[in-house]
Design a binder for these strands. Structure first.
Lengths: 352, 352
DNA sequence: CATTAGCACTCGCCAATCGAGAGTGCTAAC
DNA sequence: GTTAGCACTCTCGATTGGCGAGTGCTAATG
């Protein structure tokens, strides 16, 4: 019975096309697919018996399984993987879809901190899956601008704009009462001192300023808060993971019971794993798929992610991608993720 | 059999305490509760037969139902309503819980735009339900500060700080190349012109400036964007609805099937209904419960919301609250929501 | 020698059945 | 008004049997 058991990578062209057919069929129907259905719906030019033989081969190669004796075949994670490597990588988005996506981005070009959200929204609706995106975040952020706004004489709002586009707002309690005038003066000093600097440089610059006079003390006090805020920003591995299209995932029959679904949501909150994942693709510029059990954590075992990073490796990078059941339309997902990440690249390069 | 059918509002004290017992029991067990279980677990001092009679009365008063002949009783929406009105309104949080919540707020006092998120997180974990919160948003926002940061000579980042604490960042394409120097000058002019103003006032002020010289044109151009951004902010009925604790809701047995659960999530995305709800409680200062079918939309029929507004009616108001299955621990929910909204009041009054 | 028709076989799925158990409503006694 | 007793109803879970889908094997075929 061990006829044409091959290592994946050297598969009969015919076997390959049948694997492909099984996957396409299964992705659509969500039910195990049998030999008869295959010959009927795909013009294979062979009988169901032959298909059965090949299916058996694919199974012993580990690319397909059997839920039980008298059921059709279901792709394994390895099957999807083979499919993704051999076929889906080259998938390109249709010009129509490209245009539609471009158009959607055009609508909100003025709100840069919303781009990544939009990317997730677009990916979710284009694939009818969930999608995630993070804002572009640098390893070590550079301060672009510091501003201080008086709230009352004892309280001020400190606003830090980063070169990479992000923004932080922090309330600062003032040791001494101060008017907006004083705050403005302090802000100008801090701005001159810290603009273009990272946390480390900003702190060093701050030590060179003497804390004399009311303004000097104010500068020191607020400056320390600036440094802390920048540090804090740097330290967060992922600043924020925005997700959209969760309702789409809920439609999938594999998640018809809530406990299955819960794991997907738990997965999204597993920031440490997502962080590692993002780390591993950051700057590669490639679209990568993480299929089912390839994901370490238990709760990720029946979802797949298709991710790509965007931004400039040296500077700020973020991640966009799609999250759905293992039974996912990978070519479509890979195509859209690649395109959207490319678009994000264009966008961030404009504000760099 | 129509013995003591009363209009809700005038209920036997004994009947009342039995209704209460049914609700408490059902909230805990999620299964229909029978007469035997009641006499056993609550010291009622009467036999199960008596309890049965009273249960029948409560049922004909519309406060309880029967899933089927041989099942125990389940509260109706009207039953919960009666319970909430008569008993739960007075519920107060234990000092320990108060302290714990206060403590959690203390941890992040410096990030004012995160308060509402924290409120939702705290409510979710305190009640083991989902929770929602919106940032405080004014009807007509006042500009507090305008800032312009150069990105390149053709592109600038416009930052608007509102008196109410919110922040907006908008990219502005420049018609003429401009250095940071020019931008700073323009920002100072706009700041002087618009600080303390609403959208309408800001626009009027802008017309009094002549668009002469490079700076004049720049001020006009950016000023128009400021007005548009403020208008845009004003127009959004709800700026953002943050939700947390969705995983808690997924634990509830009534949502064990994903299609049930989907309606909850869909409910959260029904911004128009939430908007109306928020509208109706804004500024009342009271905690209000919306129980099951009291909610209009189909998808809300088996969830309840316990909401309260915070902030100052004349100025900015936001909403915090809890969202869970109709089978909810209302006293606890009402207690925590009341307390948290009070806390939010304190917090925003500091930065007003 | 690959392909194919034929066929026995295996299981999951579904509907029907059944008994147990829970809880009710009613009646009659207290 | 309360309560014991009891017949009745209905869900739930387990069990069973038939159906059908789909397989794997064998033997025939070009």
């Amino acid at each position: 019975m061990t006829r044409r058991v091959r290592t994946p990578g050297s598969l009969d062209p015919r076997a390959q096309s049948i694997l492909r057919a099984v996957i396409e069929e299964y992705v659509e129907s969500a039910t195990p697919v049998g030999s008869a259905a295959l010959v009927q719906r795909y013009r294979l030019g062979v009988s169901s018996a032959t298909v059965r033989n090949i299916l058996a081969d694919l199974e012993s190669a580990g690319l397909l399984t059997h839920p039980h004796t008298s059921a059709g075949r279901v792709p394994t994670d390895a099957g999807y993987r083979y499919f993704v490597e051999s076929v889906a990588e080259t998938s390109i988005l249709s010009p129509v879809e490209q245009l539609m996506i471009r158009h959607q981005f055009g609508q909100v070009q003025h709100a840069s901190e919303q781009w990544f959200r939009l990317a997730a929204t677009i990916l979710a609706s284009a694939n009818r899956t969930a999608a995630i995106a993070t804002p572009a975040k640098p390893r070590a952020a550079h301060v672009r601008r510091i501003d201080l706004v008086s709230i009352n004489e004892r309280l001020a709002s400190l606003i830090i704009v980063f070169r990479e586009g992000a923004l932080r707002q922090v309330l600062v309690n003032l040791n001494e009462p101060a008017e907006q005038e004083d705050l403005t003066r302090a802000a100008v000093i801090l701005d001159g001192l810290m603009a273009g600097r990272t946390a480390v440089d900003a702190e060093r610059a701050l030590t060179r300023i003497e804390a004399v006079g009311p303004i000097g003390a104010l500068v020191q006090h607020v400056g320390a808060r600036v440094v802390a805020a920048v540090r804090d920003y740097d330290a967060s591995a992922i600043e924020e993971v925005f997700s959209d299209g969760l309702l789409n995932v809920m439609e999938a029959p594999e998640f018809d019971r809530s406990d299955k679904l819960r794991r997907v949501f738990a997965a999204l909150e597993n920031r440490s794993y997502l962080g590692r994942l993002f780390e591993s693709i950051a700057g590669t510029g490639r679209v990568q798929a993480f299929i089912g059990a390839e994901n370490g954590p238990e709760e990720m075992r029946d979802v797949s992610l298709v991710l790509a990073s965007y931004g400039e490796p040296g500077r700020a990078v973020g991640v966009v991608g799609v999250l759905g059941p293992t039974r996912m339309a990978y070519p479509q997902a890979i195509g859209t993720v690649r395109f959207v990440s490319g678009l994000m690249n264009e966008l961030v390069s404009h504000i760099a």
